[in-house]
Design a protein around this nucleic acid. Structure first.
Lengths: 164, 164
DNA sequence: CAGAAAATCATACCAAAGGGCGACTGCGAA
DNA sequence: TTCGCAGTCGCCCTTTGGTATGATTTTCTG
């Protein structure tokens, strides 16, 4: 069960804190001005000074508030930097081309191992079948690829995008 | 020759414009308040309302100023744009790699034809030599490539960049 | 030019590759 | 259940590939 801290999002709680602070400051300032007003200003200066003082104070406060409270949404400037990426050495194309030629998964598997330079015996040992089975798969593979030799099969398979 | 627009950076000119605007607004407001003061407020309300009005106005102005003037900080997000570089379909590398392995030109020629799926006999007919000669070249080629079969030779040769 | 390297060819032998045929099993679609 | 496909395996035979060895010729290169 997730911990219960606040149902309000953090930005809202922060704003609440700021508003409270603002109110307190405003109250304090007004009280201060009240005191000042009756002690010196009204007797020696005009209302303009009083207004200017208040204006300056609240302008400053507003600026601070504007900068602080409205958690400035940073402008995200996306700088696009070209990065040279090596062409996909991965090679992903399989199913479509394979099926188009009627080549089974097993046959393709043998094709890949053949292309890796393995003999029929090595392939047989690798995939745990007899050498005869590998030969059978290879034969059918050659037929489907129109090849008479394994080297030719590899060559045309590469041309067809069956193998990298 | 570059065009002469302004010697000041754009941010400074913008700030100047803002300050000017601020001054004009302040002046206008004070003038407005002056008019209002002598017409209604002084006779019907106390100084508190005047001060509050000024405070509210300048606070709002300050907020607007704070938000507007201090241009929101930019966060520069570096986005890496992948540029796919097509693998060189050209393939130019020959002499260096070939010599490094001690492979002769003739042997490389036979290697390429082998990779094209040709039989020893076909290669022999192609380059007008006997099949035995092709076999000899092939044997030495395998030895230099550390291969036991032609498919393996093709595979390792491709890995060495000898053939595309 | 002499020597080395490369290219050529032959003969013999063995291993690997490939084709043809038949057979069996497991699995999924009709 | 039947049918067909994919996968498996064996046997026999032919072709191709690969090694070994030796020899001759061409082509560079010092």
């Amino acid at each position: 069960m997730p911990s219960h801290r606040s149902l309000l999002p953090p930005s809202l709680t922060a704003m609440k804190r700021h508003i409270l602070l603002y109110g307190l400051l405003a109250g304090g300032l007004i009280a201060l001005l009240k005191v000042v007003e009756y002690r010196y200003l009204v007797v020696t200066h005009s209302v303009e000074i009083y207004g200017g003082l208040v204006a300056a104070l609240f302008a400053g406060l507003g600026i601070w508030l504007g900068v602080t409270l409205t958690g400035r949404p940073e402008r995200i400037v996306v700088k696009e930097v070209p990065v040279v990426v090596q062409a996909p050495a991965t090679f992903v194309a399989d199913p479509a081309r394979r099926e188009a030629l009627g080549i089974t998964k097993r046959e393709l598997e043998i094709l890949k191992l053949m292309a890796a330079g393995m003999s029929n015996k090595e392939i047989a040992d690798q995939i745990f079948v007899s050498e005869n089975t590998v030969k059978t798969h290879a034969s059918r593979l050659f037929e489907k690829l129109g090849a008479r030799r394994r080297t030719q099969a590899i060559h045309t398979a590469k041309g067809s995008g069956l193998i990298p």
